[in-house]
Design a protein around this nucleic acid. Structure first.
Lengths: 296, 296
DNA sequence: CAGTGGTCTAGACCACACT
DNA sequence: GTGTGGTCTAGACCACTGC
């Protein structure tokens, strides 16, 4: 836009662009260009309920718009998003500004850049990030040398959330949830050793139609199946870890003596916009594995 | 440098700069300008033991040079480093290239940018990062509401590293190490409840002169004292977590029944260049606290 | 070969902090 | 006011990918 006047960032050109940013606010559809006034704005326009509320740098606004498109499913997990040049044209900003927005989204693991090919929507289906959220590592070797875990679904039922589960999932008590119990076993000495006992709670509405068969039939990462089947992408999670003793049933399922201390790992996984989509309570046996964490 | 020819990136100008990068390799001292050929270099120069071995982007080389200065102590923790413009002049690159190098160092928590003031060497002494490496959180409230921990040094002695400790610290068996045992207690119900029992091993040579008095007299974060007294900055750490039962002595020191399961947290803390500088083995009581982790 | 992301530069203006 | 980092732009060239 605004050809000519290339070498100088003239006052007029600047004012022109500024006015566009100030007033062209989120045209509904077809031309998603929602620049807000960058910062030193005329205070009069601040008060307006302008739809896009924040006074943030342009690249942050662009980041927000890209995020909206990701949420809306405009580009599906694994697909390429438009090139930087295309996005720059679409949002009417320079390529550099789009680049900075994409840089941050890539740092958040929402997008993946591939030189020469394009920028892609991140997915849990890829080999090198399959165990992104699983921090339990074998004491010897690595996740790669260990091979895939054996999964055994013990239970899968639909029920109403109690107060505890509802609070953690951001639901109301009594809302429908799906509860799954499973055991993960890792290869060792020619057999498989039960190592993780997990209970999962999933909100009933977004996961409508999920069955025990669907879960147990699935090869590959569970979160990848959630993306493909339900369009739900887990982007972030929080874990709280404690040391506990198992009860009799838990010890039996893990084939351990009841006096074995275990890690209790409570995970809440979030999709876009910090919406909780999974509660997971795991018991990890740390006889041959450990929970690995990196501090920066 | 190279004035004139401003609007066009002419072939001559480019060739000139390239030659500078290719041949001006790490002048010893006084003018640290060590640009290596960016990438598409003449293969002949690759084989040379050119001191700076990597063929990396300019900003990565600049990052490396800044890192060297940090390591060498040219700028001390808490001090400001030269402005972007100054560094750009010093390394003979554009401000944007220096900026990208600093951006990465800031993302690694080695530098802290403060708008309008400058860029500072990160330190463990600042309030908002005091508990950067401590992931144990109170179940209710936060680290802020909880107030500072009470620290009690139980033991501090100089000894020779056994094979285990030596391996983890990158030393040889028999090398001198300092061993410290302490208990951390947190405020609760008007008193202090012992919650963490830690054993620390520090390499003897870099920590020469550290005494039990110096440790127990110190208010403030231990890592901040290491920076101020020994010039050692912990920049990164790895933790391995397990569930364990305490032995009789450990249970006594934590004032817990011997049948209480505890978190075992083994930490190796590194200074610049991935050099291990501390081994720490902690036992965390998770009755009123939990280990919190964020997954991205 | 064309198209993509990656690097580097140069220059303008803004927001912030100190003096 | 001066100087700092922060944002935005524009344009050039590079490296990688796939046609």
């Amino acid at each position: 836009m605004i050809p000519g006047d290339s070498s100088k960032d003239s006052a007029e050109a600047r004012a022109d662009r500024t006015s566009i940013r100030a007033f062209q606010i989120s045209l509904p559809h077809s031309f998603p260009m929602a620049h807000v006034f960058p910062a030193s704005a005329d205070p009069a326009s601040t008060g307006q309920g302008a739809g896009t509320p924040a006074f943030s740098p342009l690249y942050q606004q662009i980041k927000g718009l890209i995020l909206q498109s990701l949420e809306a499913g405009e580009w599906k997990p694994g697909e390429a998003i438009p090139s930087e040049m295309d996005l720059a044209a679409r949002y009417r900003v320079s390529q550099g500004t789009v680049r900075k927005a994409i840089d941050e989204l890539a740092a958040d693991n929402l997008l993946i850049r591939r030189q020469g090919k394009g920028t892609f929507v991140a997915t849990h289906a890829e080999q090198h990030v399959r165990y992104r959220f699983l921090k339990l590592m074998p004491d010897q070797g690595s996740t790669d040398t260990e091979g895939p875990a054996q999964r055994h679904i013990i239970d899968c039922k639909r029920l109403r959330a109690n107060a505890d589960v509802a609070r953690l999932l951001g639901l109301r008590t009594g809302d429908a949830v799906l509860q799954v119990r499973r055991v993960l076993s890792f290869a060792a000495n020619g057999g498989f050793v039960p190592t993780i006992l997990e209970d999962l709670w999933l909100p009933g509405v977004p996961f409508k139609g999920l069955t025990a068969e669907r879960l147990s039939d699935d090869r590959g990462p569970m979160y990848a199946m959630f993306e493909a089947e339900f369009g739900i992408r887990m982007v972030r999670a929080e874990e709280k870890i404690r040391a506990v003793m198992p009860d009799a049933e838990q010890a039996k399922l893990l084939e351990l003596p009841p006096a074995t201390p275990l890690l209790s790992v409570e995970r809440i996984a979030y999709t876009y916009n910090d919406v909780a989509m999974e509660l997971r309570r795991g018991l990890y046996s740390t006889a041959t594995h450990h929970y690995r964490n990196e501090l920066n």
